[in-house]
Simulated scan of single mutants.
Amino acid sequence: MRKSVLISLLLVGVVFPKGDADKELLAKAKQFFSPLPKSFPSADNPITPQKVELGRLLFFERRLSVNDMVSCATCHAIEYYYASPAPKQMGALKLQPRHAPTVLNSAGQFVQHWIGNRKDVEDQALQSLTGPPAFGNPSKESVEEKIRKIPYYVELFRKAFPKDKEPITAENIAKAIGAFERTLVTPSRFDDFLKGNTKALTPEEKRGLNTFIEVGCVACHNGALVGGNMYQKFGIYEPYWKYTKSESIDEGRYAVTKKEEDKYVFKVPPLRNVAMTAPYFHDGSVASLEEAVWIMGKVQLGKDLSKEQVRDIVAFLKSLTGKIPEDARKPPILP
């Protein structure tokens, strides 16, 4: 067989059966991704059924806020896949500085918040109690005093923290909410694919996965969460605001470190459930996933992705939409 003919056959996939191509893609994908775990455990905050149930109630508890108007679920709503549909959400006393992302799978990230100023979900919950853009309480003690007046919670805290002489503390509120969030894992068809079921993805989704890898998205978006495990400058090749049309320029982690090299650096967001959690980027400046993908190509990769590439990548990203755990699909009845 002539060499040119052999190459042509290889390009159209005639020489190797489709099954082999799928296995090759699976092997390639497993170099960058891994299936979601069943939960995100913490040595400092062991997950127990009692903590999780208490945390689920507290996640929806408006009385944690200074004005009894705001709960975790206000900014991380079930109907929006535990995210916010607003570019920036109003807290108890103040507008939040950045977009409120989903808390689904969030506990698996290496830090919390866009600029990494919270070390884990427990730290995030604890600091939210007194943060003006969150619950706005004047002190931790004021929250504790309020919750201690609710008999139902007194009993639940005693069961969740049986070794504590005084179970109702701000730290335990944060641990309970954190324990609940550590169970918010949403496996999808992509996990089935990674576990060996090559039929779990459609041909278009497989093309998108391959494109996602080949164009370089995996340099930052990798691991079980498809992101959430590193910092990166937003705007490597061009200023991000040139394309996002952001109303204001956010200097990112520079606000935390005051280091020049941290200007415009943010935590790389996980892409699990990304198709369900618009708007996009730290300021919620882009409503369309297709536009967000194209912008990322321009500013992060220095590439002008074609319509076909964008379409296929978006198809792959939609395969990351998972199922919300059964007991987290509707709000609980609060005491």
Score class of each variant (00 low, 15 high):
K163W: 12
K165L: 14
G178F: 02
V185E: 07
T183N: 01
N172W: 00
T183K: 07
P162I: 14
L184W: 09
K159C: 05
K165G: 01
A176P: 03
R158H: 11
P162F: 11
A160T: 07
T186H: 06
K165I: 13
R158C: 06
E171R: 12
K175M: 10
K175L: 08
R158Y: 13
A179I: 02
K165M: 04
K175P: 01
L184V: 01
P162Y: 11
G178P: 02
A179C: 08
P162D: 11
I168L: 11
F180S: 03
D164I: 01
A179R: 05
L156A: 14
A176Q: 10
K175A: 12
E155R: 13
T186E: 03
K159G: 03
N172V: 03
S188D: 05
T186Y: 00
S188H: 09
I177K: 01
G178D: 06
A176Y: 04
A170T: 08
K175R: 15
E171V: 13
V185S: 02
E155C: 00
I168F: 07
R158M: 09
P162R: 09
P167K: 09
T169D: 10
E166H: 10
D164K: 15
I173P: 02
T183H: 00
I173K: 09
P167E: 12
A176K: 14
R182A: 08
K175Y: 07
D164H: 13
I177L: 05
A174Y: 07
A176M: 09
F161S: 06
E181Q: 15
K165A: 13
A170R: 06
V185P: 01
E171I: 06
K175D: 07
F161Q: 01
T169P: 07
A160Q: 11
I173E: 01
I177V: 15
E171L: 11
R158T: 12
T169I: 02
K175I: 06
T169K: 09
E155M: 10
I177C: 02
L156P: 01
F180C: 04
F180M: 12
A176V: 08
I173L: 10
F180K: 02
L156M: 15
L184I: 12
T186L: 02
T183W: 01
F157N: 01
A160N: 06
A170E: 10
R182G: 03
I168C: 08
R158K: 15
S188L: 07
T183L: 00
F157R: 01
E166A: 13
P187Q: 06
T169G: 12
F157D: 02
V185F: 07
I177Q: 10
K163F: 14
I173V: 15
A170G: 11
L156V: 04
A174W: 01
